[in-house]
Design a protein around this nucleic acid. Sequence first.
DNA 1: GAAATACTTGAATAATTGTTCATATATCAT
DNA 2: ATGATATATGAACAATTATTCAAGTATTTC
Lengths: 125, 125
Amino acid sequence: MVAELKEKAICDICEVFNPDNQVVEVMKEKELADEVVYDLAELFKTMGDPTRIKILYALKERELCVCDLSELLEMSASAISHQLRVLRNNKLVKYRKEGRSVYYSLDDDHVMCLFGQGLEHVLED
Amino acid sequence: MVAELKEKAICDICEVFNPDNQVVEVMKEKELADEVVYDLAELFKTMGDPTRIKILYALKERELCVCDLSELLEMSASAISHQLRVLRNNKLVKYRKEGRSVYYSLDDDHVMCLFGQGLEHVLED
DNA sequence: GAAATACTTGAATAATTGTTCATATATCAT
DNA sequence: ATGATATATGAACAATTATTCAAGTATTTC
């Protein structure tokens, strides 16, 4: 059962179920296209900051506005807004305006998947 | 069958099979411990550089020595060595000495898992 | 309209980072 | 020992980055 799924898996822990997925193809390539390398680096760099990690984690269940995040992380609204822009530019969060508030939420599931995988690495040994 | 596995999953795409895994527990927490936040950020920051992405990807199947990597990426051995140190410090690669060469390889599966998840995000839309 | 609130943005500054260059260590061949 | 090869490391420099501060826009309330 598990073996069956593993056929298309990149590794034992993280399974990719989408059968005709580009990822599997790209991972088989000998060299990565420069653009892919650059984009990947940008993605990881974006997740490579404690403030942004906290923001993403805070958004894991519910959407929050800038001032919610500002209070939660005990940082200025300006600092939070700057970081949200970085997250937005890298498609890690999306937003929704309501009155004078702007509500942010995670853009897709990949973010928390990466989080989980990262934790696997960090928590081991 | 898949549903059965999904019970313990963090998200639809990336499955965590280890049943008594710390990750699942940590992800349920409201707040992340500062140390975990910092370590996660360090991990992602480490993967957030094109040169290091290329090194990791080059090591995905076979171990390589510094001068192999140096030729492959067309960079000085010094630059490669500096980056390998960063990767070593963050436990993303391990090494093995043989004569005057030092062979580097990926430290564990998580690295390529993160890669796969990262690609999922980068390649979509 | 005026004041208040929520957020964004640009400039400035301090801190961090990637690469280069020079130098150092270790191993091997002669 | 000497010279050559493979790697590591420290200092230096340019480039990038996170936060702060001040000023800007947009929306609501009075």
